[in-house]
């Protein structure tokens, strides 16, 4: 596997360092060739920067991509927004030689060059495509069979598709495949692909942001989801933090919000404490408790062994 740099992004490092913790744990456990590199800035965030100054948006993203271009490594990020913004700019520049040379004439002044050769991956499709479901199954100690999981892809994991090219933008499958490989049921529900609405919190519309969170959480409660699983710090903020705020006002949903890397870590035998999940604002206890209560089922290996060597259809 090609070496890759991890792009953590501002939100994970500033607000949710425990997400960095669980991501490092799983990257280490899989022995993946990752490294941390100097010099990254904000990706930059689209709604804040692109709306005010498109050229600054492109230049900043191009510089970040140039850092990995120079090292000849790829880039993987556990942040949905970061990948999407970097890939959008990479796509724009690769499709527009004139703009690319203008950007490069500025980058040259600081000794950098954007070539756009490195691949930019979101962690989830990266695990699906590059690590693979078989490798995940081999490292799992315990699966999640019997657990009902609601997935939230996060818009920018898969869109815009012309820049990311990693899944069907309107009917994505890869995250579902990973959850099913971990033995859980991936619930299908009306608001599955609905945007989390966190962006509304960034434009001084907190009530509307809560309203968006409420729509999805209400549906999840009604279909009996054990957890909402996602892989985007912005969506995490929306569903964990804003759910907590609603709980404080007496509106209780009780839907634990779990990061993809945390779920993977749990299945590999790490505890919720080791993975930093105790820092969540909405309790993850109900999910862990239900999962633990199912622990007396025979372990996977025994079930497979029994299927192969015990009495079966052949005799």
């Amino acid at each position: 596997m090609k070496e890759f740099a991890v792009f953590w992004g501002c939100t994970i490092q500033a607000r949710f360092p425990f997400i960095e913790k669980s991501t490092r744990i799983v990257l280490e456990a899989f022995g993946l060739p990752y490294r941390d590199i100097d010099g990254f800035t904000c990706c930059p965030e689209k709604s804040l920067v692109n709306n005010i100054d498109h050229a600054a948006f492109v230049l900043t993203a191009a510089r970040n991509v140039a850092l990995v271009d120079e090292l000849g490594v790829d880039l993987v990020s556990p942040c949905t927004g970061c990948v999407s913004n970097l890939a959008t700019v990479k796509c724009e520049l690769n499709a527009n030689p004139k703009e690319k040379s203008e950007v490069n004439s500025l980058l040259k002044e600081v000794g950098r060059e954007f070539t756009g050769k490195s691949k930019l991956h979101h962690l989830v499709p990266f695990f699906h495509d590059a690590v693979g479901i078989l490798a995940i199954k081999q490292r799992m100690k315990r699966d999640f069979s019997g657990m009902k999981i609601a997935l939230h892809y996060g818009c920018h994991m898969i869109r815009p598709s012309h820049a990311l090219r990693n899944d069907d933008p309107l009917n994505p499958q890869k995250f579902d495949n990973l959850i099913r490989a971990m033995g859980a049921e991936s619930l299908q529900f009306l608001t599955k692909l609905m945007c989390c609405g966190q962006g509304l919190d960034r434009i001084d519309e907190h009530d509307k942001a809560l309203h968006f969170a409420r729509i999805k959480l209400r549906e999840l409660k009604s279909i009996g989801a054990d957890a909402l699983v996602l892989c985007c710090p912005s969506c995490f903020l929306q569903f964990d933090n804003n759910q907590f705020l609603m709980e404080k006002e007496g509106e209780k949903f009780g839907i634990p919000v779990i990061y993809f890397t945390e779920l993977l870590g749990l299945s590999m035998g790490y505890t919720a404490e080791e993975l930093g999940m105790t820092a969540h604002r909405v309790e993850v206890e109900p999910f862990i408790k239900k999962w633990e209560s199912m622990a007396d089922r025979p372990p996977r290996e025994e079930a497979i062994e029994a299927g192969l060597n015990g009495p079966n259809l052949i005799g």
Binding site: C10, A14, P17, D36, D38, G39, F40, N64
Partner: peptide, 25 residues
């Protein structure tokens, strides 16, 4: 950046020192 790395929380979690940002450049 849109926020600086949360240093005390990083220490508690046993995370490495954050890498240098490219702010000057």
């Amino acid at each position: 950046r849109l926020g600086e790395p949360a240093l005390p929380a990083r220490k508690k979690l046993g995370l490495p020192e954050p890498k240098a940002s490219g702010a000057d450049e």
